[in-house]
Amino acid sequence: MGTLIKILVVEDEMIIGAKISMQLTNLGYEVTGILPRGEEAILHVADNKPDIVLLDINLKGKLDGIETATQLQQYGHIPVIYLTANSDDATFNKAKATRPYAFIAKPFKQLDLQRAIELTISRMAENEQSQPTEPKTEGEEQPFILSDRIFVRYKEKMIKIMLADILYIEADRNYSHVFTLNKDYLLSITLKSIEEKLNMQLFMRIHRSFLINIGQVDEVTENQVILAKKTIPLGTGMREQLMQRMQTL
């Protein structure tokens, strides 16, 4: 099932923080918190890991934004987008050393925020994938595939689909249908390209047109697989391979 992308806002001007939160909600993202101090952000991330952190460089308190970003990384690689207001060169260079995904200069518009977030998601995928991106048709947007999730555009907003929640993926010429328990999504990418990018410990190609999540399999017959009451054809000679793979989970 697709879920909203979670974003933490760390901003010591609460009026600005509230405005950013409203803009993020309008864009279809989930705000996990609006916090004024770096110390609070670190505690928050320890319990509620967001997908992205929007972080003011010039935070008041014991930790400024740069020190906060450095300490956040002990909880795993969390993409940071810095919010800046007339930072000097020394501060900018110090912030750049923490390898943020983007900078947004205050004041900014909702469109600036949207573009920075989508560029961040794109970079997250690029950092995890060594394969070149498959060419796409003009006007279409490919999904961003990471090791444990896929980011896709759905109804004008970016959402994430955790790989563990996918039942199966079906080829549809140059597109792919991703089926979860509650929704399905049409992606502008071929099944072959998805197969090359996915964690194939979790998935298996059992038919020329179907890639399944092995952990979601409920029943295997001679020529079919059943996942959440959905019947998928099983290619010739694939049953034994599938059974072996299922035993390794």
Rank of each mutant, 00 (worst) to 15 (best):
M243Q: 13
M204A: 12
V225A: 07
I121T: 06
E222Q: 15
F144Q: 06
G33W: 12
K6N: 14
I166N: 10
R239E: 04
A164M: 08
R245P: 00
S209W: 06
L83T: 13
S21W: 12
K157T: 14
N86V: 03
Y29W: 08
E126S: 07
K109P: 00
Q244G: 11
R173K: 08
N174L: 08
T137R: 15
L211K: 14
G61P: 03
G235N: 13
L63T: 10
I232Q: 01
P100K: 15
M246R: 15
G65H: 11
T32H: 12
H207W: 05
F179H: 15
T133P: 00
E134H: 08
V217M: 05
V9S: 09
G235D: 13
T98S: 07
T32W: 14
I15F: 10
T133K: 15
I7C: 01
T91G: 02
N127S: 10
Y29Q: 03
G38S: 07
Y154G: 00
A18N: 14
T231V: 10
T120C: 08
K160P: 00
E126N: 08
L198M: 10
I169G: 06
Q110M: 12
S87I: 13
V10S: 04
F203E: 08
T25I: 10
K229G: 00
T25R: 15
L24Q: 03
N58A: 14
V10W: 10
V225C: 05
L119F: 10
K60E: 15
L242M: 05
N26E: 15
D172G: 01
E141L: 11
I81P: 00
L202S: 11
V31Y: 14
K197V: 02
T133H: 10
I57M: 04
Q244I: 02
M246L: 11
Q142K: 12
V10K: 08
R115Y: 13
P79N: 12
M204C: 01
L54E: 03
L63C: 06
A164N: 12
T180A: 08
I117P: 08
I145L: 11
D165T: 14
D56F: 14
N86M: 05
L181Y: 02
M238F: 06
K19T: 11
K6V: 01
A85H: 13
E140W: 01
L186D: 08
A41C: 03
E219Y: 13
L113F: 05
F144G: 00
I214F: 03
A41I: 02
S130W: 05
L163R: 08
I66L: 07
L54A: 03
G17C: 09
L27H: 12
S122K: 09
V45T: 02
E141I: 13
I194G: 00
T70V: 09
L111I: 12
L55G: 09
E40G: 05
I7R: 05
L63I: 05
L242G: 06
L111A: 13
A18F: 06
I104R: 02
T84Y: 04
D184Q: 15
E118Y: 14
P36A: 08
